[in-house]
């Protein structure tokens, strides 16, 4: 039960969506874009979010794409996590999507919704960070395609009225050796203590994390440490733990010290697994 009223709009085109959003905003109705809605509904119920209107983007064809366009994989923001796992075009992304919430929820949570989540994990961004994905954003000036790093800094940073339409990923990444490690406090279905995932490309290992800090991230200096062949695996792990110790969080799911322990093990395991690939 949501104890406040809002208006519901389901535009059929990108332009309609942006227009109605900006109009509602102007009218002071605090609109929000609406994907799967799971987070908005649960937060609205407990009173931690309120809004006067929702703009549901699930009927916009551009947001529903899922497939290849020449050398890129296109992933619409309104496709569900289940769509991703069932199609399984990008195994790393499928693994990621398949470990967010539970299976039934994956049928409702959208790709864009997860990326734009206010909950700190946003795990679907990790494959995008690793593949230098490009994001298409709709706004009052039409569509803009940008490198992920330009709009995703800890979280998705869009201007008022803008929303994510799709992500595109270069095909070459889809076949690269990858790893996906999600460690939780105890349960399979839970927020991550640490999610570490990565790709090995031209002998170089890329890595990105969620759960470790209060935002998901991929950092060049961490990757350099990871690939520093002058050091033993455990030395590299120690160095990374040391470098990240300032941002590692302590919460209900695990203390910072324990996260460091798990991180170290995880990095060594990853390096061991990748060494022959």
């Amino acid at each position: 039960m949501i104890s406040f009223d809002f208006e519901y709009y389901r535009p059929d085109t990108l332009k309609e969506a942006v227009d109605i959003f900006l109009k509602l905003d102007k009218e002071g109705k605090s609109p929000v874009y609406y994907g799967g809605g799971t987070e908005l509904i649960s937060m609205a119920r407990v009173g931690s979010q309120s809004f006067g209107a929702v703009v549901d983007i699930k009927n916009i064809p551009e947001c529903k794409v899922l497939g290849f366009n020449a050398d890129t994989l296109c992933l619409g923001s309104a496709i569900t996590l289940s769509d991703i796992t069932e199609a399984n075009y990008f195994p790393l992304l499928s693994k990621t999507a398949g470990r967010i919430a539970d299976h039934t929820m994956q049928g409702k949570i959208t790709f864009g919704g997860n990326l734009a989540s206010t909950i700190i994990y946003r795990e679907t961004v990790l494959p995008l960070l690793l593949t230098n994905a490009r994001l298409t954003v709709a706004g009052k000036n039409g569509l803009a395609e940008v490198e992920i790093g330009q709009v995703f800094k800890e979280r998705l940073r869009l201007q008022k009225g803008e929303f994510l339409v799709k992500a595109t990923i270069d095909k070459k990444f889809l076949i690269a050796p990858y790893f996906h490690v999600k460690k939780t406090k105890n349960e399979k279905i839970d927020y991550p203590l640490i999610t570490a995932e990565g790709l090995k490309l031209d002998g170089y290992v890329r890595i990105a994390f969620s759960g470790l800090a209060s935002y998901p991230f991929r950092e060049a200096n961490i990757e350099n440490m990871l690939n520093d062949s002058s050091l033993e695996f455990s030395q590299r792990a120690d160095k990374i733990v040391q470098a990240l110790s300032g941002v590692i969080t302590s919460d209900l799911y695990g203390s910072a010290e324990y996260r460091k322990y798990v991180l170290k093990n995880t990095i060594v395991n990853i390096l061991e697994t990748l060494k022959d690939q």
């Binding site: 406090k185 105890n186 733990v241 010290e257 324990y258 322990y261």
Partner: peptide
């Protein structure tokens, strides 16, 4: 007995 608890008891909770 969550893994972190076991780790803490066994190791004293230090890396």
């Amino acid at each position: 007995l969550v893994p972190e608890t076991i780790w803490r008891i066994k190791t004293g909770g230090v890396l």
